[in-house]
């Protein structure tokens, strides 16, 4: 009884967070074990890859490597060792980079969050803008034109758009650097560093966001057309509100609900899945890290990235729940 009381007083949002947390831990543990087991299905291990890349190998060098990486142990022992390290907040050591996995991921995380967060933010803002314009001019030529354009963007692969952007803006016009996340070897600070980062970020961020922009614009358009037909909008319009005010004050919150739901799911995908855009633009993010780790059979790194992604997905979904509750309080009371 008391507990209920506390929960009620603490507010419904805390309930959402507490709810997420209670299932987060078992979910994440399950994900770790499943990931570990699934990776074993891949043919070849880190030592096979290291030996192939060396161009030379002997029985002795190979067995020394297996001992060094712990791959000479039976599978159950490897899993137990991994879980026990994990319980001590130790993600292990990369077989490819020979550094603690936590350090490697920490070095990649800022650039990853910048790219993914930037792309998703851009997609949401542009999606809302375009969707609102299309909804309020539904059926007119602007709406049709934008719909066609978005369909084109939606169906064009991101890497192709990326390559074309590089050809135009880097090779032909020389406006932006074609690869990397910062100018290497310079000790920039302040405004110069910010400018340098922005110049590197703009193309990959745009290439990554275009697909999602198209998705969100269409979502917003559909929801908003629906909302604009409702009685309270009619009342607001009768009150004499300017169409822009109408959308900004009354329609946009409703239209955001599906976007927030979908964006929460997308962020999870993007963290480890921006690999194509990261590769095309040489952006040192987590997607490429995961991909390289997969090719190298660097399972500690791969498991670390997957673990972090699963934690972030759980966290972001909790955040999305909270956001949805703020957008539409009715969701919390249900």
């Amino acid at each position: 009884m008391i507990k209920d009381h506390v929960m009620k007083r603490a507010g419904p949002w805390l309930r959402v967070v507490a709810g997420s947390a209670s299932f987060a831990l078992p979910t994440i543990l399950g994900i770790v074990i499943l990931n570990f087991l699934f990776l074993q299905l891949l043919p070849g291990d880190a030592v096979d890859v290291l030996a192939m890349r060396s161009g030379s190998a002997t029985v002795e060098s190979i067995s020394a490597l297996r001992v060094q990486t712990g791959l000479d142990q039976p599978l159950s022992g490897q899993l137990a060792a991994y879980l026990s390290r994990l319980a001590h907040f130790d993600l292990g050591v990369s077989t490819q980079y020979h550094l603690p996995v936590a350090d490697i991921i920490a070095a990649r995380l800022p650039d990853t969050l910048l790219l993914v967060g930037g792309a998703l933010g851009l997609a949401v803002v542009l999606g809302l803008l375009l969707g609102s314009v299309m909804a309020s001019l539904a059926g007119r030529w602007i709406d049709r034109m934008l719909s066609g354009l978005l369909m084109l963007i939606y169906s064009t692969p991101g890497f192709w758009i990326g390559l074309m952007m590089i050809l135009l803006f880097s090779v032909k016009l020389g406006l932006f650097p074609s690869a990397g996340s910062a100018t290497i070897g310079t000790r920039l600070s302040g405004l110069a560093a910010l400018y340098d980062k922005a110049a590197h970020l703009i193309m990959p961020m745009t290439a990554l966001s275009l697909f999602y922009t198209a998705v969100y614009a269409r979502l917003v358009r559909a929801t908003m057309i629906d909302v604009l037909r409702q009685d309270f909008i009619l009342a607001a319009r009768a009150k004499g509100l300017h169409p822009v005010t109408l959308i900004r004050r009354h329609a946009i919150r409703n239209a955001l609900i599906p976007v927030v739901t979908v964006a929460g799911i997308h962020l999870g995908n993007l963290l480890g899945g921006a690999v194509v855009v990261e590769t095309v633009f040489g952006w040192p993010g987590m997607g490429r890290l995961a991909f390289d780790a997969l090719l190298s059979r660097d399972f500690p790194v791969l498991l670390g990235v997957l673990l972090l992604s699963s934690i972030l997905v759980v966290a972001v979904n909790a955040l999305a729940d909270v956001l949805l509750g703020w957008l539409d309080p009715r969701i919390l009371t249900e």
Partner: peptide, 22 residues
């Protein structure tokens, strides 16, 4: 004074790096 060894894993991007002088 200095050598910067830069890893570019995408083959197409490597052509671009030579074209742009990167």
């Amino acid at each position: 004074d200095r050598i910067v060894a830069r890893v570019i894993s995408d083959p197409q991007q490597r052509s671009v790096a030579f074209e742009t002088g990167t």
